[in-house]
Structure formats: structure tokens, C-alpha cells
């Protein structure tokens, strides 16, 4: 059994890498991918804690609600990617670019 700490370190790394990508990359598709990485970091946490909980309290049997939530999350992420890509397509049609630095009309 891999201890919980390893999973948490992995998910933290993924989260930070994703956040770094979201903050720095210019290409909106890459930003979207980074968001997915962050989302998956959260999923890993959910699954990890779920199994950790089961080992901690064997009397309750195997509790899979955390893993179910991870599945939910993946499904929503898929929908989100679809919407996100659709927005990006529209943006590209309108501005001929998906560089997030240039898409800044929602400002003062």
C-alpha cells in the first residue's frame, strides 16, 4: 500500500504545475489543458482519501463515495472541456487568435 503522503505530494505537484501553466501560458488550449491537470490533481486527492478512509475505519467496510465523486468530476470535466473548446473556437473565429493576453476586452 502506497502511503497517503505520496499521493498528496503527487497531486500537489500536479496542481502547482497546472496552476503555473494557467498563469503563464499564452495559448488558450494549453491553459485549458493545465486546468485539466489541476482538476485531475483534485481527483487524485478524492480517490486517495477515499481509500485511506477505508483502511482507517475497516468496520465501515469499503466506502466508495469519494471515488464516485471522482467519476462525477471526470464527467463534468469532460463537459467543461467541450464547452471550453467551443468558446475557444468562437473566440478564434471572432479574433483570429487564441492568445489569452490579447483577449482582454472585458476590462475597464
Amino acid at each position: 500500500m502506497i502511503p497517503l503522503e505520496y499521493w498528496l505530494i503527487l497531486s500537489s505537484l500536479m496542481f502547482v504545475i497546472g496552476a503555473y501553466g494557467v498563469m503563464t501560458r499564452k495559448n488558450a488550449i494549453v491553459v485549458l489543458m493545465c486546468i485539466e491537470i489541476m482538476l485531475n490533481a483534485a481527483n487524485i486527492n478524492l480517490v486517495a482519501f477515499s481509500s485511506y478512509y477505508s483502511t482507517l475505519h475497516p468496520a465501515f467496510g469499503t466506502d466508495v463515495s469519494g471515488q464516485v465523486f471522482a467519476l462525477f468530476s471526470i464527467a463534468i470535466a469532460a463537459a467543461e472541456v467541450a464547452v471550453g473548446l467551443a468558446i475557444l473556437l468562437s473566440v478564434y473565429r471572432r479574433y483570429q487568435t487564441i492568445d489569452v493576453d490579447k483577449i482582454n476586452i472585458l476590462r475597464w
Binding site: A19, V22, M23, T24, V31, V100, D101, I103, N104, I105, L106, R107, W108
Partner: peptide, 17 residues
Amino acid sequence: IRKAQSGNVQRYASLII
């Protein structure tokens, strides 16, 4: 102060974090 509202999503994200 409104200059902070730059419209740059990445900057917003950075500030949130």
C-alpha cells in the same frame, strides 16, 4: 483602482492564487 481590472484572465488567476 479600476486599472487593476486589466481584462487579463491569467493575471486574475495569479491574484486569486
